[in-house]
C-alpha cells in the first residue's frame, strides 16, 4: 500500500509542479522591448520633404492627459530628429508650413485599454501655431490593433501626420511607431536609443 501512496504522490507532484499557467506566461516576455511600426498604404512619402517636431509630448497618467516638455521628451525628439534626417527629411518649424508634423505620446500609466488615437492631443497645434483647421482631428487610414493595455506602462508613441493632405478639419497619420514599455523603469538609455532607432528601421517612413 505504501508503494501505491508514494506513486500517487510522486505522479501528482510531477504534474502540479511542472505546469505553467495563465499569468505566469506574462513573465516570459514582459521585460522584452516590443517595437511596432505602421505605414499608410496611401502615403506618398517621396513628395514629402520637410517636417516639424512638436515642442512637447502628450503624457497619459491614469487617464489624465497633459502636454509635458522635459529631459525625456527632448531626448526622444532628438533621437526622432536624427532618424528623420538620416531618411532625408529636413527639419523646419511649424510656422514654416512643413509637410509633416511629428507628435509624441507617452503612456506613463493607464487604468484601461488604450486604443489608437487615445493619447492624441492635436489641438495643441492650433493653440500654439494658429493653424486654420481647428479643431483638428488626426485619423488613421489603416487598421490598428490595441496598443496599450492596463498591464503596460511606459509606452512611447511617435506619430507623423501628412499636413499636405489635411482636409475637412482632419489630417491623416501616415506613419506610426510604438515602443512598448520602454520607459517602465527597467531599461537603460542605450536601450531607449536602440529602440527608437529600431522603430524607424523595421518600417522606415519613406
Amino acid at each position: 500500500m505504501k508503494i501505491v501512496k508514494l506513486t500517487v504522490i510522486a505522479l501528482m507532484s510531477i504534474w502540479v509542479t511542472s505546469c505553467s499557467w495563465g499569468p505566469g506566461d506574462l513573465d516570459q516576455t514582459q521585460d522584452q522591448i516590443l517595437t511596432v511600426a505602421y505605414k499608410s498604404p496611401d502615403a506618398n512619402f517621396q513628395s514629402l520633404k520637410t517636417y516639424a517636431l512638436a515642442d512637447s509630448m502628450s503624457v497619459v497618467i491614469n487617464g489624465e492627459k497633459k502636454r509635458v516638455k522635459n529631459e525625456v521628451s527632448e531626448n526622444i525628439f532628438s533621437l526622432i530628429s536624427q532618424n528623420l534626417s538620416k531618411l532625408g527629411y529636413t527639419q523646419t518649424t511649424p510656422s514654416q508650413n512643413p509637410d509633416i508634423l511629428v507628435d509624441l505620446g507617452y503612456i506613463q500609466s493607464t487604468n484601461k485599454t488604450v486604443y489608437p488615437g487615445y493619447w492624441s492631443d492635436w489641438d495643441w497645434w492650433w493653440d500654439y501655431y494658429y493653424y486654420p483647421w481647428y479643431p483638428w482631428y488626426p485619423y488613421y487610414p489603416y487598421p490598428m490593433p490595441t496598443i496599450v493595455s492596463t498591464y503596460t506602462t511606459g509606452t512611447i508613441i511617435i506619430e507623423m501626420a501628412d499636413v499636405t493632405l489635411a482636409k475637412d478639419q482632419t489630417v491623416p497619420i501616415i506613419w506610426h511607431g510604438v515602443v512598448r514599455s520602454i520607459l517602465n523603469g527597467t531599461h537603460t538609455q542605450a536601450q531607449l536609443t536602440d529602440a527608437i532607432n529600431e522603430v524607424f528601421t523595421i518600417l522606415p517612413p519613406k
Partner: peptide, 13 residues
C-alpha cells in the same frame, strides 16, 4: 503585411 512591422520576442504555448 507590407505596411506593418513588429519586432518582438514571443512566448508560445
Amino acid at each position: 503585411n507590407e505596411n506593418m512591422a513588429i519586432n518582438a520576442a514571443q512566448y508560445r504555448y
